[in-house]
Amino acid sequence: MATATSSQTRNTVYVAIFAAMIAAMGLVPPIVIGIVPVPITLQTLGVMLAGALLGPVRGMLSSLIVVVLALAGLPLLAGGRGGLAVLLGPTGGYLLGWIFGSLVIGALFKFWVLRQKGQTGRIITGLVSVIIGGIGVIYLFGIPWTAAVTGLDLGTSAIGAIAFLPGDLIKAVVTTLVAVTVHRSYRALMS
């Protein structure tokens, strides 16, 4: 049924739907989760999910599409932000980090997490992967970017990022559980 061409179109549709998910998560009012009083936006949840569910290349392309559409002017980022100023501003690095974050999460899921046989093994390796890619890599771009653009030193810039850490950790747990659950029923998602 699936020829080479149709699978390419299928991949594009998957990339597009996850890009739309990342965008939609920035448009809806955020969920307030019990433990954390601060309402967290779900956009990075979408970025993490794209990598964990679609794998490195398609996951990265989903994030890339959102970044491109936002820079081109669509108000897709949390708080209705968009346009070129987002990239030039102090938080532009986090946006670039999304692209590489979903790439790293996708690669780790494809070559490490999904090779685990047991459910527990997948959850543990999955969580490690999402934390590396979805928090580590994104902060790796975001923190030096803020420091470079504002002139703050790296330490202060990192302290600013810590405010988002609890929310991001919750999103990492959610991503892992969702991804492991979905991969169980959609085995062919990444092959």
């Binding site: 597009a16 890009a19 739309a20 965008a23 998560m25 599409i65």
Partner: peptide
């Protein structure tokens, strides 16, 4: 195709999410 589908899917996914 990817860019236009993504834009097209946003309202649909927002609705699905809500």
């Amino acid at each position: 195709l990817g860019l236009s589908l993504a834009i097209r899917f946003i309202p649909e996914l927002k609705r699905a999410y809500l």
